[in-house]
Write a protein that binds this DNA or RNA. Structure first.
Lengths: 242, 242
DNA sequence: GCACTCCATCTTGCATGCAAGCTTGCACGC
DNA sequence: GCGTGCAAGCTTGCATGCAAGATGGAGTGC
């Protein structure tokens, strides 16, 4: 019933908890730690535990864990089973399709917004996006797929984080986190992403040219292609959830 | 704490609270009630209170109120001031701009998704969208702006709610709720929305034609126009917040 | 009269106590 | 042997107690 749960040790809250300057709330610490643990697969999909167990492992009482769980459930990472405990949820191909559709929309909006802001105000952002794309190119030439994935992720993070719309940043951060596992898992099953560099540059050029429609279209087309590559792979692998 | 000691009574929680079948949690009741009260201006912008006061009026303890507040803060409805209490936040023109950019993105994604689903599977949805548009048209002819606004809102709700993507529905619901007040407030300051009916039909036609790109473009263009009409009005009125 | 300091109070975050409901397992009866 | 019913335990949701920190006011000193 509890796959590999008992002996698995959770650590990492201490740092945040003890830091005197940060004065981080326990509930936030619990949320951040659990979210990170789920994203990095330290807590595997299918893991099931009660609030009391989790609280004990994190060295706090049930209250902050309870609040963290409510947030994690809202964001789709866990499911609170009525009287059975907390279940770490996986993502089905259908879930990933939903997530990608949202990212297509949000990143398109972010690119539009950046292009609307005009030239000088965003030259720094454009520079950063270009730098990250260059990092992708170098990583690709070197065959370092992990470095490529890091740079690609950073590009997409920067696009939404620096678009000037804090709500987009927050929403996209929440949503894209959920697709993290799937992207990493399928990293080596996808065709070599040479196309990505070109598409990223198209997005950048449209932003530089202050052409919102083109920027949005380019961003959406880029993500759409990623979606149409990723989802069939997952379907073929018959991942009911991951 | 004496429940009912305050003379001003907030009603609406009781029904949900007492319902034996529903078995609704107090935290959810508090969240729903407070959100609704804020959206309908029963609790005005600028209202400030402590958790204890709110809990007393709702006839519950601080715990569920605390959880509800955390959610409401995440969604931007209130702000928890460090040691001052809870403040009901208003929306600045910049906030509304952010919200509209997100809705542009999400509704575009919803329209794309609907168009991708193809013909037969979505005929029912198309019919509903067409019916709602017709209601708008009739309301417009009758000069009943409130009815028009209701139908317009229902159209947009249906677009995201029936697109098949539950995450889009949830996100859009949260985000668009925040713009509710602003839309209603400026209802009579905007030019007659005859254009809206045409644009809605363009969206519907593109969905029927199974043309995702056109459907997304139409949905975005429609919302973009609304944004570009609404935001300048708010700026001109010098609403720092509402 | 003004400014600074100190104290008291108020507020939130967390821990713990308590109750209600479901689930599961066992025992008994048919 | 099987089905049903009861009971006990477990889990969560909520109430309340407690402590830490900040703020505001009042008092005193210059």
């Amino acid at each position: 019933m509890k796959p590999g749960s008992k002996d698995q040790k959770i650590e990492g809250v201490r740092g945040a908890d003890e830091s005197p300057a940060g004065a981080e709330a326990r509930a936030d610490a619990a949320y951040r730690f659990l979210r990170n643990a789920i994203l990095t697969n330290e807590i595997p999909v299918g893991f099931q535990a009660t609030e009391v167990e989790i609280a004990a492992r994190l060295g706090m009482s049930r209250t902050p864990v309870h609040e963290a769980m409510a947030r994690l459930q809202e964001e789709g990472f866990v499911q609170i089973l009525p009287r059975r405990g907390i279940l770490v949820k996986g993502l089905s191909p259908a879930d990933l399709l939903e997530i990608y559709d949202i990212l297509i929309g949000l990143e398109g909006a972010a690119a539009e917004r950046l292009a609307l802001e005009g030239g000088d105000a965003i030259s720094e952002v454009v520079q950063e996006l270009e730098n990250l794309t260059e990092r992708m190119e170098l990583a690709l030439d070197a065959g370092d797929m992990d470095a490529w994935a890091d740079a690609d992720e950073a590009f997409h993070d920067a696009l939404v984080a620096r678009c000037g719309n804090g709500r987009i940043r927050r929403l996209a951060g929440t949503v894209s986190g959920q697709s993290h596992r799937a992207r990493r898992l399928t990293l080596n099953m996808r065709p070599p992403p040479a196309q990505s560099v070109i598409e990223h540059r198209q997005i950048i050029h449209a932003i530089e040219a202050a052409d919102p429609i083109a920027a949005g279209s380019a961003a959406r087309a880029h993500r759409r292609r990623a979606r149409d590559q990723l989802v069939p792979i997952l379907r073929r692998l018959n991942f009911s959830s991951l």
